[in-house]
Design a protein around this nucleic acid. Sequence first.
DNA 1: GTAGACTCGATCCATGGTTATCGATATAAA
DNA 2: TTTATATCGATAACCATGGATCGAGTCTAC
Lengths: 234, 234
Amino acid sequence: MVIDINLSTPLRVGRQEAPSIPQPSLARLPQYHHYLVDLAAKGITQTTCSVIGRDLGLIPVQVRKDLQHTGIIGRPKTGYSVAELIQAIETFLGWNNINEAFLVGAGNLGTALLGHERFSKFGLRIVAAFDRDPAKEGQWIHEKAVLPLEELADLAQRMSIHLGIITTPPEAAQAVADEMVKGGIQAIWNFAPVKLKVPEHIIVHNEDLYSTLATLSWKLARRFRVSLKEKEAV
Amino acid sequence: MVIDINLSTPLRVGRQEAPSIPQPSLARLPQYHHYLVDLAAKGITQTTCSVIGRDLGLIPVQVRKDLQHTGIIGRPKTGYSVAELIQAIETFLGWNNINEAFLVGAGNLGTALLGHERFSKFGLRIVAAFDRDPAKEGQWIHEKAVLPLEELADLAQRMSIHLGIITTPPEAAQAVADEMVKGGIQAIWNFAPVKLKVPEHIIVHNEDLYSTLATLSWKLARRFRVSLKEKEAV
DNA sequence: GTAGACTCGATCCATGGTTATCGATATAAA
DNA sequence: TTTATATCGATAACCATGGATCGAGTCTAC
């Protein structure tokens, strides 16, 4: 039996999402990136996994594995070139190509994201905002126009926008997601604490602040339970 | 050989942080909570893991396992009482007790969090904001006073604030964290994309928007690479 | 009252990410 | 030039989480 291992025809058998990099590694890459940019600003041109690990609270092996996914190759004893490493991460993450995005929900959080200039350095450009509230319609927030929600689908299609950001209250999120899908948007960054129902091929990522909050408050509560118990024991 | 399995003396040998619940389960609990509150609002009083799983995109076994951590007990065939379940989650997460918090960095994101009333339902009350910028000092944002950073440590101690939220630019975050530690704050919710150096016993949780952004842009970039390749193949 | 179907709870297995180990290699010092 | 050391890259063991299975119990329908 001959097995075809021709790499130009990827094995995509059945599953359409071959991750090829663990999600946690992917999530750590921006941290390396931040750190490396800092290093570069200090004029440091070479670094090693050991140093990175020490500064970021990770073990060297993990750093090495994560970075290997970007395709970078290091040299024994020397380590990596900082510049090359930054370049490799940016290319790998697609931060060189701009992703244009629509944002829906011009409330507190939406406004904050619209004003976050730093995103532009990481390949994200929010080009317009949408809101159901007629009072907000026609306003400009951080130099971005606020448009009525009805225009989203059409505009997204004509401008070939691929990314949608949802910062509405949870009740409205599903309807907004439907509009986005209608407009041909490929990926949704969802800040509303609901599970969105979308077609299979749409990429959805939830940024659930309440998840973090839950972890924090659970840990705090447990800490106080424990210290209370210790007090009782005394 | 007799092994003492007295549960009143937990095994905490060495490690001081016995999670006792997987982190992913913990992160899912708020989703169940949101969902259950919705159900309750619709007047539904009983539900099962199968139904929850169907609506939240999880398999029943996982739901059951997650919920078991809260101490709830269900009944065969019937499932769980929605009200009891909500109660169990809230108690487990410590959402019944209010956590008072200080927020530092009254920029776009900080302002948004200050105005997020919904947090109060989940045990979080931001009682004051701090900023290094003298222009902001003395202002009120969403009914919260903006105070100079120098007063943080003293005030935190006197008001026995346990939670700090950092929404400053990355350069300032470490200094702020130091102040918080000085003020006796126990846990830090860090929105700045830096690794904070704090004493061992401080709980830190990073809310790194760039991690999510990285995942999204990588997936988008990969999708377009793939579709490009398919086009070439044609 | 009894049979059947459904769900809980517990145990077991599989998958995947993290950590440890080992050989290879390049730099630096002798 | 040679030797020692630090680091990379790869392989292998380990552990946590996710998923599957099975017995037990309860409600419904007949």
